[in-house]
Write a protein that binds this DNA or RNA. Structure first.
Length: 274
DNA sequence: AAACAGGCCTAAA
DNA sequence: TTTAGGCCTGTT
């Protein structure tokens, strides 16, 4: 153990379930410890998080990171109220109760875009493997509690590579998508910061101009990193659930600004049923 | 062994 | 506007 160890307590007023939040498919870099804590690295900061009475306890490496973690865990939003609002019928009430405690993380924009580009046609273990290898090979080390973790590599770093450099990572056909996205972002052709200030339609169109980014990946980037709470990513599980429950169709705008959260509840619940 | 996977792209109706 | 097949690779 070295200098690291800054301890933080973050009060959580409503509901937050770390396990659900980290396993509901929105992020890929948190690992569960035997004691129920989670170790990971986000926004360039390594941390170990555990749920305690009334909130979260964090051990981390950076000073003055309280507000960043509070924002990451979306602590300013009232999830109990949001969950109530998306419970528009018995199915949604069941799904929302099953997913109670899920929070939509406010993640790094580049990492999120890149991770979901990698996610296509992969399962979670494989996505995690691809992301970890990318970080280990090209990210920067951070030491937490005697362990070295690696940040997600900056777009500039990846933009300087070519497909041969990525071959050992076994990203498959996704490698060229990652490279072209890295080049677009690092060159300023695609300004993710600017996108976070625009509307959903504009941001989505810009994201989809990248090769390898279709509707689903773009919606994930919008919801999980561009703070567009009504983005509604439709993957095979959500599509399945919607067909089963609403064969006549469902206009997701009924959920308003909670549509993204509704999608997470549907996804998490449907996936649990296999 | 052959099919399929948390999707996208292109070609063809 | 919708549909089928291919794409890298790992897993079953």
């Amino acid at each position: 153990m070295n200098k690291t160890d800054i301890q933080i307590f973050l009060p959580v007023k409503d509901e937050l379930d770390l396990n659900k939040t980290f396993t509901c498919g929105q992020c890929f870099r948190w690992r569960e410890e035997p004691d129920g804590a989670y170790t990971g690295i986000a926004l360039g900061m390594a941390a170990r998080v555990r749920a305690v009475e009334g909130g979260l306890h964090l051990e981390c490496t950076e000073r003055d990171c309280r507000s960043q973690w509070a924002d990451y865990f979306d602590l300013s939003r009232n999830y109990r109220e949001a969950r109530e609002r998306v419970s528009i019928d018995s199915y949604m009430r069941t799904a929302a109760e099953f997913g109670s405690g899920i929070r939509i993380l406010n993640q790094d924009r580049w990492e999120t875009l890149c991770s979901f580009i990698l996610s296509q046609c992969s399962n979670i273990p494989r996505i995690k493997k691809m992301v970890e290898s990318l970080c280990k090979c090209f990210g920067e080390p951070r030491t937490l509690l005697g362990e070295t973790l690696y940040t997600f590599p900056e777009p500039e770093k990846l933009a300087a590579l070519d497909e041969r450099d990525l071959a050992p990572l076994r990203l498959g056909y996704r490698a060229k998508y990652v490279l072209s996205a890295a080049r677009a972002v690092s060159s300023g052709t695609l300004d993710l910061t600017a996108l976070s200030q625009t509307d959903r339609v504009t941001a989505k169109r810009a994201l989809m101009s990248l090769p390898g980014v279709g509707e689903k990946v773009a919606d994930c980037a919008l919801l999980f990193s561009l703070r567009i709470p009504d983005a509604f990513p439709i993957d095979v599980w959500v599509r399945r659930a919607l067909h089963e429950q609403y064969p006549q169709g469902l206009d997701t705008s009924i959920f308003g600004e909670n549509a993204g959260l509704a999608q997470q509840y549907i996804f998490y619940y449907r996936r649990s049923l296999g």
